[in-house]
Design a protein around this nucleic acid. Structure first.
Length: 566
RNA sequence: CGGGGUGUAGCUCAGUAUGGUUAGAGUACCUGGUUUGGGACCAGGGGGCCGAAGGUUCGAGUCCUUUCACCCCGACCA
């Protein structure tokens, strides 16, 4: 492509509302154009990058035995009513009616559509397994879209669904998809981690997220210093802590503790480590038809992980409760403990099972119990509800956990029969018995990947595309188009590289050197061939965007040199 | 969905407290000229329903009411 003919509207200034590097540079370099909140148009450069990513996904999916399909974007609301998700998704589903007043939904994900396509067509275990995927625009009417392509309302996603006759076969496919996703992200040139994730209300026996590591990521993930373990903090586990403080020595007793309400007060009052105190976090668990107050107990040095807490109760949502509500139930905020207290349901963190030497509220104004032995509460409901801390011990080895930020670019689920059962998608097994399909689902955010590449690969000058994602591999810059020899060499190289199937841009604009260089750095071509002053000595320069270094080569060798580099 | 903020030239923004000729700057764009290794310089030029609707007033970008859009924090995000 000739730069003089290309539609690449670069600007010196970023949109005032852009804060993330990917948003700023993709806007400034003329990749994307915002049209409304969470809606972006892809200009030529972005379109090229998207195609590259899609091609890599297609290649790896094909290798893994998956078949590409395309489901309609507009989906009948009746399918969503059938699965029950029309309520669950709520306002995120954009609904509208056609001229015949039939209700439709813009597809935010396509489990229902895919199941609908397969059910009654695949009817025997002999036809299984199958794995179908598509790469398509999705629409979720997010309450608050933000960060450019990172969290748009309309976005491109690869979504795949596999159908199996057994859980074991689904597990096999799940592992194969994980491996394929690993290959895809590696080929894209990304530094990533596959982590264990919260499966959420949708259930299923397991899920993993693919996290591109970047400081600007919205998710916090815990990673092990020694082994491969990584998990979203919403799901991270631990096996304990490195050092356990010395236990306080005391007899079981009820102590008067005036004005000692917070954990800090307790630690100060008894001169004891927070490890031996018990914190109560009261929440209201909201279910489909009713709600109740639930008391969550964790060690004073821990914090409640709300996603885990929600999962432990099976609630649809958990919300804060006021002190007044607690008092109405007969609870005394600041002095709530698990002993001798039956006002509300308890969930106790597993780390407190059989804990000794604990201090907890006595459910009486200004009193705490000391030297509590939790083994007396062995019948209580224990669950993993505490957030892991940096420095906690890995659940699989003796390494320690540390936190890092990640961008979720993929999520793979073992769905099981969640959808097939409710949508009555069944096959006949070897015994002629009807069984719902066992399913897996595999998502990857294509447009989010575009942003993720830049979040991980940029500098203060602009984008630094990896070789497999770059919209053009080589940029030929003619420093001064009034110098005929420069133009001639530029044209010659341009023709030669095109003939060699290299994606090449020829910057033939009547602009000054500095202007064109800044432009090239902003766009982020991996290599720029600078044809300029040194041509008098038979030399041109090759500029490497990643290292920002350039070196001279003779004009006769530049073609073979660039072919070596790419 | 709660709280806050902003809408003026393609873009980034002044101007609005205290209403007053023809609404400004930088940048981008067009013309001509000089430049040509890190976003050049000079001269000339085009470009605005001041988000929208209604109101107050002799007079509204500015004051009042309504509304829409966009952004930020939070909640939400299988």
């Amino acid at each position: 492509m000739r730069r003089s003919r290309a539609f690449i509207p670069t600007t010196k200034e970023a949109p005032s509302d852009a804060s993330l590097a990917s948003h700023i540079y993709l806007s400034r370099a003329g990749f994307i154009s915002q049209v409304a909140s969470g809606l972006y148009s892809y200009m030529p450069l972005a379109k090229r990058v998207i195609k590259k990513i899609e091609n890599i996904i297609n290649e790896e999916m094909t290798k893994a035995g998956a078949e590409e399909v395309e489901l309609s974007f507009v989906t009948p609301a009746s399918l969503w009513q059938e699965s029950g998700r029309i309520e669950k998704f709520g306002k995120e589903l954009l609904r509208f009616r056609d001229r015949k007043e039939n209700l439709f939904v813009l597809g935010p994900t396509h489990e229902e559509m895919m199941v609908d396509m397969v059910r009654n067509r695949v009817t025997s275990y002999k036809q299984l397994p199958i794995n179908l995927y598509q790469i398509k625009t999705k629409f979720r009417d997010e309450a608050r879209p933000r960060f450019g392509l990172m969290r748009g309302r309309e976005f491109i996603m690869k979504d795949g669904y596999s159908f199996h006759a057994s859980v074991a076969d689904m597990d096999r496919e799940f592992d194969a998809m994980e491996a394929a996703y690993k290959t895809i992200l590696t080929r894209l040139g990304l530094d990533f981690r596959i982590v264990e994730a919260d499966s959420g209300a949708i259930g299923g026996s397991g899920s993993k997220e693919l996290m591109v590591l970047a400081g600007s990521g919205e998710d916090t993930i815990a990673v092990c210093s020694k082994c491969e373990y990584g998990a979203n903090v919403e799901a991270a586990k631990r096996s304990g802590r490195v050092t356990i403080p010395e236990a306080p020595v005391a007899e079981f007793n009820k102590f008067k503790t005036p004005n000692v309400k917070s954990i800090e007060d307790l630690e100060e009052f008894f001169k004891v480590d927070g490890y031996y105190t018990m914190k109560c976090v009261a929440k209201r668990a909201v279910y489909e038809d009713d709600s109740e107050v639930v008391l969550f107990f964790v060690r004073g040095c821990d914090t409640l992980q709300e996603v885990k807490a929600q999962n432990a109760t099976g609630a649809l949502d958990i919300v804060d409760v006021s002190e007044e509500e607690l008092r109405e139930l007969g609870l005394i905020p600041g002095f709530i403990g698990p002993l001798e207290q039956g006002c509300a349901k308890h969930v106790i963190d597993i780390d407190l099972r059989d804990a000794k030497s604990m201090i907890c509220g006595a459910n009486e104004e200004e009193y705490h119990f000391v030297n509590v032995d939790m083994s007396v509460m062995s019948e209580a409901y224990y669950a993993d509800i505490a957030a892991v801390n940096e420095g906690d011990i890995c659940p699989y080895c003796n390494g320690t956990l540390s936190f890092t930020k990640g961008i979720e670019v993929g999520h793979i689920f073992k769905l099981g029969t969640t959808y097939s059962a409710v949508l009555k998608a069944e096959f006949l097994d070897e015994n002629g018995k009807a069984q719902p399909f066992v399913m897996g689902t595999y998502g990857m955010g294509v447009s989010r990947l575009v942003a993720a590449v830049i979040e991980q690969h940029h500098d203060d000058k602009g984008c630094i595309w990896t070789k497999t994602t770059a919209p053009y591999m080589v940029n030929i810059m003619i420093s001064n188009i009034k110098e005929t020899p420069q133009v001639e060499l530029g044209e010659e190289l341009y023709a030669k590289l095109q003939a060699a199937h290299v994606e090449v841009m020829l910057d033939d604009r009547k602009e000054r050197f500095g202007f064109k260089m800044n432009d090239a750095e902003l766009i982020g071509f991996p290599y720029t061939i600078i044809i300029g002053k040194e041509l008098e000595n038979g030399l041109v320069q090759i500029f490497d965007r990643k290292t920002k270094e350039s070196f001279s080569v003779s004009k006769d060798e530049v073609f073979s040199k660039i072919m070596d580099l790419i």
